[in-house]
């Protein structure tokens, strides 16, 4: 469904993504792990069209996406929860969710999905009129994920959803990612530092090192791989 071929991207004269090819099939959870600064967030921003893809191709189905405006990419069903959540601080929780559904026009469907995310995270329903910026970090992460779900994405790009969260909340977030994937058949591309948890819910994984894919394989295989164990699992 999503296919990257020799993608290159960066900022000014910094080439953060040097040569990345990878593939995500419909219905999969695929994870991308890598050290700080290896280029994970840059790659997601290139997929979302926020920064330009300098070389190579990004295909969604059989459509080329490089060069499209970000709003067109969202319209095609690709939604990102960026690193650091990016909640609109002075919009209420409810308005943040509305913004997630910005491109949708089916009022009933939006209402249904809003009820659905409130059922996933009852705390958000309780806080619906509070400004997004006043939520706790964990609540903001729940809101960021919910906001992306409001778009009914075909492909969900998640950038370190576990960052800065308590173990119990991390567990809950990962369970919900799994649940969305199995119930709604939403394809998930998950960037994580938390390699252990990520590989446990993923089907397959890639390891990014210095802007290049260093390793790839089934999640189970990567969990057993001695290099991965040493570098990313701390075993």
């Amino acid at each position: 469904m999503l296919k990257l071929q020799n993608v290159q991207a960066g900022y000014g004269n910094i080439l953060a993504i040097k040569d990345v090819s990878l593939e995500v099939e419909r219905g999969e959870i695929v994870t991308l792990i890598g050290a700080n600064g290896s280029g994970k967030s840059t790659l997601l921003m290139a997929i979302s069209g926020i920064i330009p893809c300098r070389k190579g191709r990004i295909l969604f189905g059989d459509r080329e996406m490089q060069g499209l405006e970000p709003d067109r990419i969202v319209k095609m069903g690709i939604c990102q929860v960026p690193e650091g959540r990016h909640i609109f601080p002075e919009l209420s929780v409810r308005e943040n969710l509305d913004m997630g559904a910005f491109l949708r026009t089916d009022k009933n469907g939006i209402k249904e999905d809003m009820d659905y995310v409130y059922s996933l995270f009852p705390i958000l329903a309780e806080r619906r009129n509070q400004d997004g910026g006043t939520l706790s970090g964990g609540e903001q992460q729940m809101l960021a994920l919910s906001r992306a779900l409001m778009a009914r994405p075909v492909l969900l790009l998640l950038d370190e959803p576990s960052m800065g969260l308590a173990p119990l909340v991390i567990k809950q977030i990962f369970e919900i990612i799994k649940k969305i994937n199995s119930e709604y058949k939403t394809t998930v591309f998950l960037v994580e530092q938390n390699a252990h948890q990520a590989l446990h819910i993923a089907d397959r994984g890639y390891v990014l090192e210095n802007g290049r894919i260093a390793l790839s394989g089934s999640a189970a295989g990567l969990l057993e791989n001695p290099e991965v164990q040493k570098a990313y699992l701390g075993i």
Binding site: S48, P70, V74, H86, P89, M99, F102, L103, A151
Partner: peptide, 11 residues
Amino acid sequence: QDTTMAMLVGI
């Protein structure tokens, strides 16, 4: 409030 995020929700 957040231009990048606005783009990411399709604005």
